[in-house]
Write a protein that binds this DNA or RNA. Structure first.
Length: 275
DNA sequence: ATGCCGTGGAAACCACGA
């Protein structure tokens, strides 16, 4: 079971690109961010023609998130991050798919910092921390996947010294993210590649992709039940090099099948199950 | 060090992104 998060930076402009990626990569579950499309203009038929069930929360011009599931329908739990009735940005959607609870999020950018936009980012992080506390404790697998707009550590940015005053890397941002992680989440990419230089985003300008001047800001956080099934994690960075690419690359994990999908090992069973 | 590029929406520029 492969679960991938991908900030597509406008589903309208990215649709041929997205369709190609779905066909070639065939992920089981996809969390999309930055649809930049109103609810009624989401290209639902294209997604369904590609073989995916889908739920989405759109918004005119900005934000927008979706969960795609190959061969099945995501069962929506909520489409708002609790904690602020005044917040009308489309930045969160949550569903159960294939026995997994998936939260798909697009955390506010927060620049310029300091300022009201940074305050909003920090408040959003606090709301996420509150909501995540209930999710991490579940006995069943939970994944919080998305564009966090958080550079967790110095090794997650090509030149840390240039980013210390940026909302993605300020100490307040990193401290809040660290508190989230301390709940017991596993950063899947970092868990499996503790020392590697891995980025998920490269600016469009300054030849950033060719220079590998990137950031690691797209994350998949796994609760203990999900982390127990973690097999691999990777960034499909070649997709960033495609024509008309998003500035982010798809970032994903492979999970072992859950107990419900594998034959039980009973007392009379002596070997691995045959499927 | 910097929106130098890209997207969407409105209006031939602006907001926003990270």
């Amino acid at each position: 079971m492969r679960i991938v998060t991908y900030n597509i930076n406008g589903i309208g402009a990215r649709l041929p690109n997205l369709r190609r990626w779905l066909d070639e990569s065939a992920p089981d579950i996809v969390c999309l961010q930055e649809l930049k499309a109103p609810q009624e203009k989401f290209p639902e038929s294209v997604i369904r023609d590609a073989g995916y069930g889908v739920i989405w929360h759109g918004q005119k011009s900005w934000n927008g998130v979706a969960i795609l599931a190959r061969g099945t329908e995501p069962e929506e739990i909520r489409r708002v991050l609790p904690g602020d009735p005044e917040d009308n940005h489309s930045r969160y959607i949550e569903a159960t798919v294939h026995g997994l609870l998936i939260g798909c999020l697009y955390l506010p950018n927060g620049n310029p910092a300091p300022g009201p936009r940074f305050d909003y980012k920090l408040r959003w992080l606090e709301r996420l921390i509150t909501h995540a506390a209930a999710l991490v404790a579940r006995d069943s697998p939970v994944i919080l996947a998305g564009d966090y707009n958080v550079i967790p550590t110095e090794r997650d940015v090509y030149k840390p010294e240039r980013w210390v005053d940026d909302a993605l890397f300020r100490v307040e941002t990193r401290a809040a993210f660290a508190r989230l992680m301390q709940q017991g989440w596993t950063d899947a990419i970092r868990k499996l590649h503790p020392d590697a230089q891995i980025y998920t985003f490269w600016d469009y300008f300054r030849n950033a992709y060719a220079r590998d001047a990137g950031l690691r800001i797209d994350h998949l956080l796994l609760n203990p039940a999900a982390a127990a099934r973690l097999v691999s994690a990777n960034v499909e960075r070649n997709v960033r090099g495609w024509e008309k690419a998003s500035d982010h690359a798809p970032t994903g994990v492979q999970l072992r099948e859950g107990r419900g999908a594998v034959r039980q090992m009973g007392p009379s069973t002596v070997g691995p199950s045959m499927t």
